[in-house]
Design a protein around this nucleic acid. Structure first.
Lengths: 236, 236
DNA sequence: CGGACGCTTCGCCGGCGGACGAAGGGCCTC
DNA sequence: GAGGCCCTTCGTCCGCCGGCGAAGCGTCCG
């Protein structure tokens, strides 16, 4: 981790760049202009920041007409952002402790690149592993028969999940300090729950703060369904 | 991750500070003077850096006589350093690819704060979980009867492991990109293997580069024992 | 083909922070 | 208690980096 460790950290150390990255943790690809507004800087400034993020391998860019769409380069980037976020949360808890408006909603449910984080993400992970739906096999995690049946019934595309680079893996959750489900299965789980309308994005693709793009909220029916299907009580 | 995310990242973004942190990943507490030499800066400079690291909650300090011993504040710091190291390794692999002298030895075996990382750490984790020694129970990971018996026979202090804040948890390994064993059990496993002389530190507490303090090498007898007890082939 | 739009490059400014030397506390030794 | 050691604080310098406006491509629209 040495060559370039400090350089990579420096990419995360600027408020504008970190706002952009956190906005991209919502999983959508955003244009340079949108990211400039989100980060609160002028277009030339944003352009420079994005060039550095792309050069550092954290962000991938895709041209489409006169727009340039930016997205996180990989799930490793998301995992590192979450891990570093955990450190920052620890430090914030130690010092003055000024409250953070997004905190509570963020702890309930949010996206972490392409999968679920927060209480919902951690709770689903605990439930799925604890109920024996996911088990350790030689070569990694795999679904058991019951797990495959239950998750397919929820509408997950298990075939798509299996084609991911990693089928299932843990990603440390900074707010709950316990793992949530990442990898192809985590992605398909998030997609299925959004598709079913159990969770929805709370920010209507407006601009504004970087964190709005990640925030999720359970719908009334979703809260009920999550309680019935997974024993998740979101009031806690 | 919001308030203070960029500020925390900035603590890692300086070459001198990052060298200090990597040296502290060796798990020992080091004095300000040692860290100054390791980072290659003058004592006043190092003092300033250390003050910032302590203020940011990444490093804890302990006075003893006229020395001040510094250590990482928690295993979360170690986990975040490893995660960020993975990002930097990805970026380094993409660009010019100048070779790094420590690379190969680092991939074989190293310390990650208080537990094992590298091929040895990942291999032991795979073996211990794959053989059913460690199993998921309500409330977290626990040893099975066989696991407790086998590990106790290797000289692990399982009682000490149980008193840790977390008994067992995964820590993503940046070089192998698979999890290794952290938590109290990971710590005791590392201690036991060092105590038995299967692994040893390769740097005799000299000064020098930051990474020397983390590097481990299997002794000839250790390589044999690891192969017999865990099926680990370190030549691969 | 002109004009609007999105994005980038260029040039300049301002401020932060990292570097060191010198000097000032604690603490241990003799 | 005199002196040495470890570490810190202070003052200063300098380089880097983030910020913006103006201007320069490329793309889409009428």
């Amino acid at each position: 981790m040495p060559p370039g460790f400090a350089a990579t950290a420096a990419l995360l150390a600027d408020p504008a760049r970190s706002a952009m990255l956190h906005a991209l943790l919502g999983g959508e690809a955003l244009t340079a202009g949108e990211l400039a507004r989100i980060a609160g800087v002028a277009p030339p400034t944003a352009s420079g920041h994005l060039a550095r993020l792309v050069g550092g391998g954290l962000v991938a860019v895709h041209r489409q007409g006169r727009h340039r769409y930016h997205r996180l380069a990989s799930e490793e980037v998301a995992a590192a952002l979450e891990a570093l976020g955990g450190l920052a949360a620890l430090a914030a808890a130690a010092s003055p402790r000024r409250p953070w408006p997004h905190g509570e909603a963020f702890r309930t449910a949010r996206l972490c690149y392409d999968h679920l984080a927060g209480r919902v993400g951690v709770g689903l992970h605990a439930r799925i592993t604890g109920a024996g739906w996911l088990a350790l096999a030689p070569g990694g995690w795999g679904l058991t028969g019951e797990g495959a049946q239950r998750l397919a019934a929820l509408g997950l595309d298990l075939e798509a999940a299996r084609q991911a680079r990693r089928f299932a893996c843990d990603c440390m959750d900074w707010s709950e300090r316990r793992p949530h489900l990442a990898g192809g299965l985590g992605r398909e789980l998030a997609r299925a729950l959004l598709r079913r309308g159990w969770l929805r994005r709370t920010a209507p693709r407006g601009e504004g703060d970087p964190f709005a793009r990640r925030r999720l909220a359970p719908t009334p029916e979703g809260a009920r369904a999550l309680r019935e299907a997974f024993g998740l009580d979101l009031a806690a």
